[in-house]
């Protein structure tokens, strides 16, 4: 092995020398312009430099060899280190993955929460909307109920007004007034169907003839036209009539 090393070293040195020669001398050889003089000096100097360079080179090689050995050693260590590193990296990667996964989960959770929140918000809005609609509907219903009841009241009043008119007409057609510029008030009680069952003078005119003529008119007009509907009829059960010729 020893000679091998020496042989390897000598070969290397020769190679190095050859390289050095080419690198220093050849440009002169192949350069016709360059003067010879210069070429000579160069050679001498080159020899001297070669020696020194060789020494340094040797040292260099030595140290290189040494370095190579340490490098091998270092490589091994590095290998180990790298494996270790790789292992650590792997672990890190796994850890990071884990972390990512965790993050992902967190994110998912967050998203889910967000979604939930949104859902709740939507629901809330929906509910709000529904409530508003319900309120509106209630309001509309109330208004329409009010309208309906007002309409009903109006209709009832209209109907009452109609019967007041026809009763008035019927009594007037039967009344032959006894006197002018007089006024009396009668209270009239009717049976369902309009038959007059009671007439009373509650406010006399001062003239018997006038009051009597009014009472007679009511009796003659009997039965009076009255509504059938119970709630309307109730108003005609008992009412007053003012006789006041104009």
């Amino acid at each position: 092995m020893r000679w091998q090393i020496s042989f390897f070293v000598s070969v290397t040195c020769h190679i190095l020398l050859l390289v050095a020669l080419f690198w220093v001398g050849f440009p002169h050889v192949f350069s016709p312009i360059r003067p010879l003089f210069e070429r000579n000096i160069d050679i001498i100097e080159a020899v001297a430099i070669d020696e020194r360079e060789l020494q340094t080179e040797l040292k260099k090689i030595k140290s290189q060899k040494q370095g190579e050995r340490s490098a091998e050693k270092a490589a091994g260590e590095a290998q180990k280190k790298r494996v270790k590193e790789e292992k650590r990296l792997e672990e890190l990667r796994i850890e990071r993955l884990k972390e990512a996964k965790k993050l992902e989960e967190l994110k998912k959770q967050k998203q889910k929460e967000e979604e939930n929140r949104e859902q709740r918000e939507r629901e809330r809005i929906e509910e709000e909307k529904k409530r508003a609609e319900a309120e509106k509907a209630a309001k509309v219903a109330k208004e329409s109920a009010e309208r309906a009841s007002a309409e009903k009241t109006r209709l009832a009043q209209e109907k009452v007004g109609y019967y007041v008119d026809v009763i008035k007409q019927k009594i007037q057609s039967h009344w032959i007034p006894s006197g002018q510029n007089l006024s009396c008030l009668l209270r009239i009680r009717l049976l369902p169907g309009g038959s007059v069952v009671g007439v009373a003078v509650i406010e006399g005119s001062g003239s018997l003839a006038f009051d009597d003529s009014a009472v007679r008119a009511v009796h003659k007009a009997s039965p009076l036209p009255v509504p059938q509907e119970p709630e309307l009829w109730n108003q005609f059960r008992d009412f007053t009539v003012r006789f006041k010729p104009q």
Partner: peptide, 23 residues
């Protein structure tokens, strides 16, 4: 109240003219 009012409002009919005919 409206209902009560309808029920309890006293109707007063005004007779403002009579017939010209002889009794």
């Amino acid at each position: 109240c409206v209902h009560l009012g309808c029920v309890q409002a006293e109707i007063t009919i005004e007779i403002t003219q009579g017939s010209d005919s002889a009794v």
